[in-house]
């Protein structure tokens, strides 16, 4: 086997972080197709008019549909999603990217905004689950 600079499993060692891979991309293909459909105004209107009915147009899993309806971004990422696709949904809702991102942190949008103004989240203790640094 060829050598690698680091074991690929180490990508799983970063706290609070999901690495978006080809496998995840495929799992989320239909979810992401839905997200990208929101790049057209007419589709945004149709989605807003009846979210459930609009989601029925896509071959997403029921879990993915439910997480969309709940705007549960952490769950959507668990189900294969990637934030660059998912912000099409929060943009459709008129959310700022910061609001969408903050919703994954367990903080309120205001608390998160205050953390960012104060310089953001320190990397200390956030680099490695194994090393705890």
């Amino acid at each position: 086997m060829r050598t690698r600079l680091y074991p690929l499993e180490d990508l799983e060692d970063i706290p609070g972080t999901t690495v978006f891979t080809a496998k995840r991309s495929r799992e989320a293909y239909h979810l992401h197709k839905f997200c990208m459909s929101l790049m057209e105004a007419a589709n945004r209107e149709a989605f807003k008019a009846d979210e459930r009915a609009y989601l029925a147009r896509f071959r997403m899993s029921e879990d993915q549909k439910q997480a969309v309806l709940e705007r549960d971004f952490n769950r959507l990422i668990d189900l294969g999603g990637n934030i660059y696709f998912l912000v099409k949904l929060s943009n459709t809702d008129g959310w700022s990217t910061q609001k969408a991102v903050s919703s994954m942190t367990g903080m309120t949008a205001d608390e998160y905004a205050a953390m960012m103004r104060a310089g953001g989240r320190s990397p200390e203790g956030q680099r490695s689950k194994r090393e705890g640094n």
Binding site: I14, P15, G16, T17, T18, F73, N74, I77, N82, I83, V101, S102, M104, T105, G106, Y112, M115, M116, G119, G120, R121, S122, P123, Q126
Partner: peptide, 8 residues
């Protein structure tokens, strides 16, 4: 993304 969002 995720609970580590906002890292700077």
């Amino acid at each position: 993304q995720g609970p580590r969002a906002g890292l700077i």
